[in-house]
């Protein structure tokens, strides 16, 4: 494979970055009832999404008690669990989403330091 010129690489990178800025995020947040953890998680996720993904995200909050069959289907064991369905790769974040840094890493919005 012939080596790509630096200029081309930079272009590709910027294109990808642009795509990331424009692609729509599909997120599912599974919570177990209205525990403090759940409430906190919902608030945290909403806040992050509004801050970083304004206008290009779909967030669905699902109460596992209401739809227990989804737990097996979505391979959920911990609660709360946030699943980033799109863009790929699929990611799971567990916890009350209070660790903003990690949440951003999980959403590919932040490069791991």
């Amino acid at each position: 494979m012939p080596r790509k010129k630096p200029r081309e690489v930079t272009q590709a990178f910027e294109a990808a970055l642009e795509r990331a800025r424009t692609t729509t995020y599909v997120l599912r947040l599974y919570v177990a009832g209205t525990t403090p953890q759940s409430v906190q998680a919902i608030a945290n996720v909403k806040q992050i999404c509004e801050e970083h993904l304004h206008g290009r995200y779909e967030l669905e909050v699902i109460d596992l008690y209401q739809k227990p069959q989804l737990a097996a289907g979505e391979q959920i064991i911990a609660a709360p669990t946030l699943i980033k369905k799109l863009p790929l790769p699929l990611r799971r974040m567990i916890g009350n989403m209070s660790d903003t840094e990690r949440l951003l890493v999980g959403l590919d919005l932040h490069v791991k330091s």
Binding site: Y30, L64, A78, A79, M93, G95, S98, R102
Partner: peptide
């Protein structure tokens, strides 16, 4: 139960309620 460590990011306190619900449902 499928768990892939590399797919999971811990973002705070969690519990295994999901597993409980799943097992309870089964």
């Amino acid at each position: 139960v499928y768990i892939e460590r590399s797919e999971v990011e811990e973002t705070g306190a969690y519990d295994l309620e999901g597993l409980f619900i799943r097992l309870g449902h089964a």
